[in-house]
Design a protein around this nucleic acid. Sequence first.
RNA 1: GGGACCGUAGCUCAGCUGGAUAGAGCAUCUGCCUUCUAAGCAGAGGGUCGCAGGUUCGAGUCCUGCCGGUCCUACCA
Length: 652
Amino acid sequence: MFTHLEAETSRALAAYLQEKYELTAPVVTEQPKDPAFGELALPAAFALAKQLRKAPKAIAEELAAGLRGVPGIAAVEVAGAGYLNLRFDRGAYAEGLLRGYERAGAPPAGKVIVEHTNINPNKAAHIGHLRNSVLGDTFVRMLRGAGRTVEIQNYIDNTGVQVADVVVGFRYLEKKSAEEVAALARAPKFDYYCWDLYARMSAYYTDNPEAIQWRRDTLHAIEHGEGELAALGHLVADAIVECHLTTMWRLGIAYDVLPRESEILHLAFWSTAFEQLKERKAVYLVEDGKNKGCWVMAAHHFRDHAGEEAGDDDAKVIVRSNGTVTYVGKDIAYQLWKFGLLGKDFHYRPLRTYPDGHVAWVAAPDEGDPAAPGFGGGTEVYNVIDSRQSYLQDVVVAGLRALGYEEQAERSVHFSYEMVALSPRTCVELGIPLSEEDKAKPYVEVSGRKGLGVKADDLIDKLIEKAKAEVDARHADKPADERLRVATQIATGALRYFLLKFTRNTVIAFDLQEALSFEGETGPYVQYAAVRARNILRKLEERGETLPDFAAALTGASLGRQLAAEEFWQLLLNASKSEKALKTALESGEPAQFARYAFTLAQAFNAFYHDFPILAEKDPEKRTFLLWLASYFHSQLERTLAILCIPAPDYM
RNA sequence: GGGACCGUAGCUCAGCUGGAUAGAGCAUCUGCCUUCUAAGCAGAGGGUCGCAGGUUCGAGUCCUGCCGGUCCUACCA
């Protein structure tokens, strides 16, 4: 409703500008800082002052006339130095919300592909991976909330160095047979086991540099899919992927398809892309210098300031002198596939059916399942990858551009975010040893190689444990399994909100105490508001009453009477802005903005809840109105929480 | 050396494409449970928006320089 009026206002003013001044300018609308100024503000007069050579205030007076007839607008005022402030017809606005209104405009066609998670399948997921997944998953839900079709991809680098290192660890460090590893992989917490092994193996390389040859041999075997080392690689990677899927599902995160590097190699995606790149002269063979014998992409493709004269040494190596392709090269091929530009496709088999019936598919080594849906072929692609990889993401986009896929390059978005580090205090708390150098830093970077970090499952367990204690203290009368379920929901809400409250380019210095907080700007705060709203409605039923048929019981006139009270109007207005909040958050690509809206919505409701004992209200019209407001808040809170994938518990 | 990001209250962070009196949470202090659950509400204190210039009706927001911090800049991923 709010966005509808906003659009109508902009359209009316644009038409008026055209008619009166023959100007075609985009109309900017703002939400006034002070609610006393009204619901919408237009600073248009300021922008026109120079062109029309008149004082902004005088222009605003003229423009006001063009807005007076807009349906739903009750008043147009000129304020300040030349603002146009609009006031809505409160009764009509509420009636629009009550009776439902048509959402204007269909969402853009085409499939959006969002790639997120992408954890190397060689160790347990940690807090940094969670930020990626929660950010990606929430963004997906926001897009779907706005009506877009979205496909979620989780790329599995199952043939990389990291998997190889764990295989080396099993084979040479622990001297385990394939059967022994298989037994470990079937046991719980295989990902934890590998976490430690990977850290030990990394340390071993440092002390025994000659061991690097093991890595080379193993990597070669894995890449070529040959022998028992390759089989071991698959065994490890597949088992770890299962662990990751399970961990992520604890937070409600699921995937549509898991493309894998092994199939990208097997199906020779790269050679197809390589032919295209050579043909378009996007890459060339270096004859001399440090990159001699490599196929490289010239720096000017991906760096703004690099001139054509930038040398071979600045170029990005795509194919090594030994003929193997780098990760970026494969990534270019993969990005082409995402847009349906490669002319090749994976085979797929179902990997997992989630409890809600959703199926995640995975790239299959051979024929695959004919029932598989079509994947890839998107019109927009978002890659949720941390900001440290922006250089490589630039190269990928440059690859598309160099091939002439300008439009797809434009629609390739590196949805970047800053890393999650650990606050020194939290390191101490977790018993992580810190060097003197680390202690002086504002935060300590997590490192899988060093085995330094907070594992996702550990953190979730801790949150559940804490929430369980709170629930137990408050609801000792409820069944234990139910209390555990509620505690799990609270933990999920706390964690998802915590990871979302920071904007993407803020480094999170993870602080355990802060993350474990359920008060203030947190997920549980928002959940609590939803629970309270529901309690009012439930209490009503417990008293033998039924919820009124609001559409019949409330009219524009009665709504107008009640909304004459400023506080009621502000509450309703606030509650009605979820669509607006979603729109601006999507435009800026910041899930944090939408999370923040959820918080302000909960704040508004909590104030309302405190100030107006609804069930005790004596005046019938007011009571009906308050009930409607409460149920409207309730539905808005639940809708908002649903998009954030924060569960709404039955009680707290 | 080159590129990118960050610097806002004691702490952690918001501040949408430049707009009206710079916000929130935490922490500190003071009130509020006989009421639809206090995981809550109300209030107080707390600011040279790193520094200096510039652009204009208007700058936390844009430009330049400086100071401080971080990341990237592999024939690793």
